[in-house]
Amino acid sequence: MRRPCRFERYLTAFADGELPERLKRKVEAHVERCEACASELDSIRASDRILKSHGAPAVSNDRWAQFRNELKLGLDDVDRDSRRVARVREARPVYAPVRRRAYAVAAACVVALFVILSVGPLGIGPWHGETAAASNECIVDSIESLAAGYTPMFFSSQDPEMTVIWVFSEEVEGGIRGEGPGAK
C-alpha cells in the first residue's frame, strides 16, 4: 500500500487558494517534483471545473425555506463541545506540526537541564570540593614517612564519613579526638 504523501492534505486548500503564502510556495514546489500530488491536484482541479460548469440547481423559495429550517434544527441537535472539537481538528493539518515540534524542543530542553543539574556539565561543573553530598570513601593502599621524627597512621570515621591520614611529629602533641595524645 502506498504511503500517503504528507503534502496531500494541503492539495484541496491549495487548489482553492486558501493556503498561507509560505505554505502555498512549499506546496507549489512540491507538486513540481511529486507526480502523485501533481496527478491528485489535476484531479481536484478537474472536479472543481466540472462543478463550476454546472449551475446551481433551480430550487423554489419554499424548498429553500424548508431546507434552512431543517438545517437549523439539525445544528441545534449537535453538541456545542463536539462542534468545538470539530473546528480544532480542522485546524490541525496546518498548525499542529509546528506546535508539536515546539513541544518536542521544550521537552528536550527540560530533560537536558535536569540531567545537567544532576550530573554537572562535562562532569566538572560547579563543584567546590564540598564534602556534604559526596561520598568520601577512601582506601589507603600504602603509607610511609621517609623523614626522621615522623610516624604516619590513618583512620576512617563513619560519621562524618572521612578518612584521616596523620603524621605524628615528635615536636607536637597530637590533637586527634578520642585516642590521640592530648585528646580532650
Binding site: W127, G129, T131, A134, S135, N136, E137, C138, I139, V140, D141, S142, I143, E144, S145, L146, Y150, P152, F154, M162, T163, V164, I165, W166, V167, F168, S169, V172, G174
Partner: peptide, 17 residues
C-alpha cells in the same frame, strides 16, 4: 608522608600532622 590512596570520585580526604 607518601601514601597511595583510592579516593571516591568527588570525595575528600584529610591529611595532617
Amino acid at each position: 608522608l607518601r601514601t597511595k590512596i583510592r579516593l571516591k570520585n568527588g570525595g575528600t580526604v584529610l591529611l595532617g600532622g
